[in-house]
């Protein structure tokens, strides 16, 4: 295996490891604190639930995009 390939592979698995920690913490935060509230909202106010769905999914995507880009740059340099 070429050194550059080894470096990329190492960076990839490092990213996965760091990412896995974030994801596990995230599971507990979101599922524990938001689960009950969202289930009630779905029953009581569907319009608000629809809006909250969009805010949550887009907000999470923007944060995760920032996080993964940051990890890519940190571990592989700015070329990728």
């Amino acid at each position: 295996m070429k050194p550059s390939q080894r470096r990329t592979l190492f960076a990839f698995f490092s990213e996965l490891a760091i990412y896995a920690v974030f994801v596990v913490v995230y599971f507990f935060l979101v599922l524990h604190f938001l689960g009950g509230w969202l289930a009630r909202l779905d029953k009581e106010s569907v319009r608000l639930y629809g809006l909250v769905c969009l805010v949550l999914i887009i907000g999470q995507a923007v944060i995760l995009e920032w996080l993964t880009t940051f990890l890519f740059r940190l571990l592989r340099g700015r070329s990728e």
């Binding site: 599971f27 979101v30 599922l31 938001l34 769905c53 999914i57 995507a61 995760l64 996080l67 993964t68």
Partner: peptide, 13 residues
Amino acid sequence: ILVALVMNTGAAI
């Protein structure tokens, strides 16, 4: 939305 949020964590990377 909870299922979607969890799936999205893997999709982002």
